[in-house]
Design a protein around this nucleic acid. Sequence first.
DNA 1: TATTGTTATACTCTATAACTATA
DNA 2: TATAGTTATAGAGTATAACAATA
Lengths: 162, 162
Amino acid sequence: MPEQSDAAAGHDKSVDMEPLTRSVGYQLRRAQLAVFYHFIHCFADYDIRPAQFSVMVLIDRNPGLNQSEIAAALGIKRTNFVALIDSLDRRGLATRMSTQSDRRSYALYLTDSGRTLVQELLRLQAEHEARIISRIGIDGRDKLVSLLADVTAAFGGTVIEE
Amino acid sequence: MPEQSDAAAGHDKSVDMEPLTRSVGYQLRRAQLAVFYHFIHCFADYDIRPAQFSVMVLIDRNPGLNQSEIAAALGIKRTNFVALIDSLDRRGLATRMSTQSDRRSYALYLTDSGRTLVQELLRLQAEHEARIISRIGIDGRDKLVSLLADVTAAFGGTVIEE
DNA sequence: TATTGTTATACTCTATAACTATA
DNA sequence: TATAGTTATAGAGTATAACAATA
């Protein structure tokens, strides 16, 4: 999860942090921790973590994909995806359906209650993002998302061969 | 450290990721993982992690601060800072000096070899950031850093009272 | 042989509680 | 009593290796 103490933001009274505050890497980390911290608190009532939310959204929009496909799209290793989908399965939010075409894999679907929940979570997420937009505007948000995608692409998006 | 499989970047052939790719939170996470992954590889020869780098930079620019002050400025809990400074101490890169004014705390300094190393690391970091600038330009970098600071501020920077 | 899902495992990062020695 | 540093510990997240069932 995120964050540790306070000062964090980077403008301490008397501490010179110049080489850090000017760097994309440092500001990226601080912003990600702050945003995820807030996100997690917004979703706490539903006991849903960011990774679980992203999995539910992807299954909702792409029903029938298997574990490897959903995991790969999110940059999650197959091996670490097992516990993730297990938790959604156990809570009755998602199901693994056997297919006749390939009996090694499962087609993933949201349950009715999973579909209901993901709609509510998407509303919560919109509120969460609204707090960002209220600060930097719609144009700022669009510009930020665009710059972040460029930065990710600059490093090949995260390449690891299993 | 970061990332998991490939696709990651967010533009899979056939997977609809719209609600995620439009969100600051998701793009922030993907970008942070990609940047840190590259950062860690750049610094692998020196066996220095991002947190260790930030601590060395802060001690270098603010010699004589104590552990709580450096930790707070970086958003690291005092308790987790111990192992961090221990590793730098053990490697002869930083030292804890007793002070006569308050015998509970240590004033932190870089050693000669610590100072030499941090200069080299700052050069490496500049190369690392150059890769980002080559993609989005100086203006893009400045805009990104500014937007990230705004986003962090929008969430109070990371507030936790110990 | 290669792939899908799985278990076991280890390492890093972060969090809380409780201790010690000073102040 | 409050603070600085410390220890112990627990929980996420992420990494690798190896296996069974199936392709």
